[in-house]
């Protein structure tokens, strides 16, 4: 089995799905000859031509709005937004149109499309290239929000997202893009949208994250186990919308403790929703308050202060110990 990084896994998922289904169209800024600024669409232009791998004008709302029309017209567009920091001109198209067409036409007009984009910090990037604003998408009814944590997950979830009959926003953690390689099957496969994944089983506390910070909490859990401090269960949420409360709640009922880790600003972040779900469904099982480890409610800092902003393995380990000692 080939060892791929996330960029290669996503590229392969796109290529295989385009081979399988002629209606899948990739569009976005620099996705064609250039293969995308992160090379995620590398080789697609050569294989499928400019009609199916479309370099678009530099206009995010245009890309998404145009893709909505393509989808209503019978195609399955996969639109790339170069960085999530530039998606906001298209937020209106996503919220006001893509997510609403099925409801307002009572199922007569539908928008099976994917909007994929790199997001998140930890890559020492310039301004507007480190945001983690997934919660403002999870708040939109009619939209699915998928966030893979590693190359294997990325391939299976993206394939599922393209086949999904509804609009999906697919956030790709930029810091994971080339950070890890792992075995990814050559054949196509899908992973379920709407199901969280228990990455590591444990009995004392549940750590919950998505995207790049699944690795953070996994490392924290392994360190705590190695130090014989405690046995932590690790959950990768995978899709924050629809959110799989059942898997998280079952875990917390077992462990009695929960910490949610995300790099997005704490207030109104998706961690708040998860915390509320746990309180509503498992409060009597709790041995300690549910905790959030999150980014500060600040503009994401530039590189010199970034390490203070991002949740770290050390911080997670300390907070787990504090919760265990509550």
């Amino acid at each position: 089995m080939a060892r791929l990084n996330m960029v290669e896994a996503i590229d392969q998922a796109l290529r295989q799905e385009m081979d399988r289904d002629d209606t899948v169209i990739v569009l976005g800024e620099d996705v064609g000859k250039d293969g995308g600024v992160f090379r995620v669409t590398d080789g697609l232009y050569e294989r499928f031509g400019e009609d199916r791998v479309m370099d678009t004008p530099l206009a995010e709302s245009g890309i998404v709005g145009f893709a909505i029309g393509m989808a209503i017209g019978g195609f399955k567009p996969v639109a790339e937004i170069q960085f999530s920091g530039f998606v906001y001109p298209a937020y209106d198209q996503i919220l006001s149109h893509a997510a609403r067409f099925r409801t307002r036409s009572r199922g007569q007009r539908t928008v099976p499309m994917v909007v994929r984009m790199p997001y998140g910090g930890g890559i020492r990037a310039l301004e507007h290239h480190s945001e983690s604003m997934e919660a403002v998408f999870a708040h939109i009814p009619g939209l699915k929000v998928v966030i893979p944590s590693d190359p294997y997950e990325a391939k299976g979830l993206l394939t599922a997202a393209i086949r999904d009959p509804d609009p999906v926003v697919f956030f790709e953690p930029a810091r994971v893009y080339r950070a890890i390689k792992m075995e990814v099957p050559e054949e196509q496969y899908t992973l379920p949208i709407g199901e969280a994944r228990v990455v590591r089983e444990g009995t004392d506390l549940t750590l919950i994250a998505w995207g790049a910070h699944v690795r953070t909490i996994k490392e924290a859990a392994e360190r705590l186990a190695g130090d014989k401090r405690c046995d932590v269960e690790v959950i990768d949420v995978r899709t924050i919308s629809p959110f799989d409360a059942a898997t998280v709640v079952a875990s917390v009922k077992k462990t009695g403790r929960a910490i949610i880790v995300h790099e997005a600003p704490q207030s109104g972040g998706f961690g708040a929703e998860i915390s509320a779900q746990i309180m509503e469904r498992a409060v009597l099982h709790l041995e300690a308050p549910v905790k959030r480890i999150a980014g500060f409610d600040t503009i994401p800092p530039l590189s010199k202060l970034e390490d203070l902003y991002q949740p770290s393995v050390d911080l997670v380990v300390d907070e787990v110990i504090a919760t265990m000692e509550f």
Binding site: D51, S61, I68, G69, I72, G73, F75, D92
Partner: peptide, 25 residues
């Protein structure tokens, strides 16, 4: 036909994409 679009000036992009789809087909 698509349903009425209440937000002003955002639906013409759907027409453009739909037109692309008709041409492609």
């Amino acid at each position: 036909m698509l349903p009425a679009s209440i937000p002003v000036g955002t639906h013409m992009l759907h027409a453009a994409g739909l037109g692309w789809a008709m041409k492609k087909k």
